[in-house]
């Protein structure tokens, strides 16, 4: 990882942050293999797939984007879907701003690295700003590197296959979304999890019912209205915004 040891933090704390960051990076890198494969199976080129991982760099949005393209939903719906899923990153940035408190010149890179994993790590090591900052950047950089390496190998591997359907890659897509969703259904308190399950099942049902009536991609956008309705309905009950 190339992080210098020492500084004013204790060595043990730094080591534990770096070790966790590396582990998270490797895990998401393995996941990126499937993104690369699915993206190529959806019709994107290797270079297009890599561009998404280099510049979009937010997993759920990337999966959704190639999912809509692959289903024939078209560019506009793919873009809107990716952006709605990415809206949570604005909130992450908002809560990280004061924690990371950095020079303005560092903001463009910091923004790029703002994802579920780096945010969760920065908020977990909140004993000092220094620890938070190291956790954020160690995790962000580690995930960025492994995510892009994984994407490349995944897309190279899938483009070597003649028919990805033979390997069941079409089933890998919903499984991938489910794996992204899972921590949000099981990570909270019991009553919170129940609410998330209710929201998820309702949204899924709405989308399925709409499939015959709307062009591909639109049912998922309509399901976003279920989230809007739920947030109005549930009023002041708060829930954490961190996922995985």
């Amino acid at each position: 990882m190339g992080w210098k040891r020492g500084g004013r933090q204790t060595d043990g704390e730094t080591r534990s942050i770096d070790r966790n960051a590396l582990g998270i990076g490797i895990a998401t890198g393995a996941y990126a293999l499937s993104f690369g494969a699915i993206s190529v199976a959806s019709g994107l080129t290797i270079l297009q797939t890599q561009t998404l991982s280099l510049f979009m760099f937010t997993g759920a949005s990337q999966f959704a984007f190639v999912g809509v393209i692959g289903a024939g939903g078209g560019a506009v719906i793919a873009i809107v879907t990716a952006m709605l899923l990415g809206a949570r990153n604005s909130l992450y940035a908002l809560s990280l701003g004061p924690v990371l408190s950095q020079k303005r010149s560092a903001i463009p890179i910091t923004a790029l690295l703002t994802i579920d994993e780096s945010t969760a790590m920065a908020l977990r090591y909140d004993q000092s700003k220094k620890a938070s900052r190291r956790a954020f950047f160690a995790t962000g950089i580690s995930v960025y590197v492994f995510w892009n390496i994984g994407t490349l190998f995944g897309s190279l591997g899938a483009s070597a296959l003649s028919d990805p359907g033979i390997l069941g890659l079409d089933a890998a897509i919903p499984a991938g979304f489910l794996a992204l969703l899972w921590p949000r259904l099981t990570g909270g308190s019991r009553s919170e999890n129940r609410k998330m399950w209710a929201l998820a099942i309702t949204s899924a049902a709405v989308a399925v019912v709409l499939i015959p009536f709307l062009r591909p991609g639109l049912p998922v956008l309509f399901s976003a209205l279920v989230a809007v309705a739920a947030s109005l309905l549930w009023g002041k009950t708060s829930r954490p915004i961190e996922g995985e």
């Binding site: 759920a60 591909p216 976003a224 279920v226 947030s231």
Partner: peptide
């Protein structure tokens, strides 16, 4: 804040369902 937190749950669940059951329309 609340709405943005709930959006991924709704949309990911819908994506799971659509990618499982849809063949075009």
């Amino acid at each position: 804040r609340r709405m943005t937190g709930l959006l991924p749950v709704s949309m990911l669940a819908a994506l799971v369902a659509v990618q499982t059951f849809a063949v075009d329309q």
